[in-house]
């Protein structure tokens, strides 16, 4: 049997890979990809805790479904913003989008 610790460790590793991607990449699309990785790590944790701690309570899976919906909305709006910025300023590099930077 697979102990819970394996899932938690894998999810922590995946989350930190996503954090690195969000903080280090210059391209806005790549930053969104890092966020997707982080959301996946969280989902993995939620489902693992559901399976190991409270398999009778379905809340873990419901929470994961809600996270799916939020991830889809976030990707749609984020990518629309990136396309809009690209149309107006011809760049998708995050540190060149400095219109509101003081």
């Amino acid at each position: 049997m697979i102990p819970l610790s394996w899932y938690l460790t894998l999810a922590a590793l995946l989350f930190c890979v996503g954090v690195f991607g969000v903080l280090a990449r210059r391209n806005a699309v790549a930053i969104l990809m890092g966020i997707e990785l982080m959301l996946n790590a969280v989902n993995l944790n939620l489902v693992a805790f559901w399976r190991y701690s409270t398999p009778g309570v379905i809340a873990g899976q419901v929470f994961t479904l809600i996270v799916f919906a939020v991830a889809a909305s976030e990707a749609a709006v984020g990518l629309a913003l990136i396309i809009s910025i690209y149309r107006r300023r011809a760049t998708v590099v995050a540190d060149e989008i400095n219109l509101m930077k003081w």
């Binding site: 102990p3 819970l4 610790s5 938690l8 460790t9 399976r51 190991y52 398999p55």
Partner: peptide, 11 residues
């Protein structure tokens, strides 16, 4: 997470 009580739990 290594301090979590259910750390070594089996399903």
């Amino acid at each position: 997470i290594w301090q979590h009580p259910a750390f070594q739990a089996v399903p």
